[in-house]
């Protein structure tokens, strides 16, 4: 498909979208704050309630949403190459589930919040190993088998999560549930996830041309001079780290990793040198917008953002699956 958009300009459009969505997230909310004041609060500090709402609530939350969305989109992009299937996504493949189970266990044991990220990483890596180890056949994988294994492993994590919830004390349950559904209400420290997003994007960008070739299979990539053993390990590891960093901040938010790369490919950005930065920017923007909707749709009540992305993502996934099997 040829798009009217010039593919090389896609990252620029992504940047534009990111700016607009972040600005929107700062401007809207339960408290009505004039736009001019919002911008003023960003640079000056007058100690008012509105100032604190903008600086300490809206801004960190918007940046956290951006980092989480970007991380999930990158994870999805890498997993789709590993699977050679546009249905790859950390949520669908159970990598989010593994990370979420580990964090829930940490919550159950009332470990301090600093443990969540390492726990999420452990769970994500374990889940990745499980899925890709089980679906491996010889030196290559069959994409469909990988996908099925991932779906089944995700169901397994789901059962474990239910188990942990059922034995958890009642006072902890609401917090656990909200976090599980994908919630950014407590995301107040965007620094680490943004850092992971930036460094991860740079690392993945080094492999962008290899990802282009690996989209046609790892054997084909090897024939064109890619060290596939190294590439595969890097993709596992980066995919797990991106997912873990996202889950530790916001719980399991589904389908951002699925939809974002797919949309960008449809706009002509199949080249990973374009796809990776655009996916990071667009995925971030998508979650910022979704989270802005989540906290204003039925204001003053807040929805977990994962509910919104799933409501939007499930039909998209089904349409994609339907179109692929039709061919």
């Amino acid at each position: 498909m040829t798009a009217a958009l010039h593919p090389r300009r896609l990252p620029l459009y992504g940047l534009l979208l990111a700016g607009v969505s972040l600005l929107l997230a700062l401007l809207i909310g339960s408290a009505e704050i004039p736009a001019g004041d919002v911008l003023a609060y960003l640079v000056t500090d007058d100690g008012s309630v509105n100032d604190r709402i903008v600086d300490q609530l809206r801004l960190p939350r918007a940046l956290s949403a951006f980092a989480v969305g970007g991380l999930l989109a990158l994870a999805g992009t890498l997993m789709q190459v590993l699977l050679r299937n546009p249905l790859g996504d950390p949520y669908v493949l159970g990598v989010s589930g593994g990370a979420a189970t580990a964090v829930l266990l940490a919550m159950l044991l009332t470990l301090p919040g600093a443990w969540y990220t390492p726990a999420a990483l452990g769970g994500a890596l374990l889940s990745t190993l499980l899925v890709f180890g089980m679906a491996r056949h010889g030196d290559d994988w069959h994409g469909d088998r990988l996908l099925l294994t991932g779906v089944v492993v995700a169901a397994g994590w789901g059962a474990l999560i239910s188990f942990v919830l059922s034995i958890s004390p009642a006072v902890q349950l609401p917090g656990m549930l909200f976090w599980l559904m994908g919630d950014l209400a407590d995301a107040t420290r965007p620094g680490v996830p943004l850092l992971v997003l930036a460094t991860g994007l740079l690392l993945a960008r080094l492999r962008a041309r290899e990802l282009n070739i690996a989209s046609q299979g790892l054997l084909q990539a090897a024939a064109l001079g890619v060290d596939t053993r190294r590439l595969r390990l890097e993709l596992y590891f980066l995919g797990a780290v991106f997912t873990a960093a996202a889950v530790a901040v916001a719980g399991s938010v589904g389908f951002v990793g699925l939809i974002t790369p797919h949309l960008i490919r449809r706009l002509g950005g199949a080249d990973h040198r374009i796809l990776l930065p655009t996916a990071a920017l667009a995925g971030g923007s998508l979650l910022v917008l979704a989270d802005s909707a989540a906290r204003t749709l039925i204001s003053p009540m807040q929805l977990p953002v994962g509910v919104l992305t799933a409501l939007f993502g499930v039909p998209v996934f089904l349409i994609l699956l339907h179109r692929r099997t039709e061919r």
Partner: peptide, 28 residues
């Protein structure tokens, strides 16, 4: 030239054929 190859993830014909230049090009 492999016996079977995949159809890739939305890549165009030109992008795919340019993959042949990969071993000749520096990383970035």
């Amino acid at each position: 030239l492999l016996q079977h190859s995949g159809s890739g993830l939305g890549a165009s014909v030109l992008e795919t054929v340019l993959g042949g230049r990969h071993p000749h090009l520096a990383t970035l």
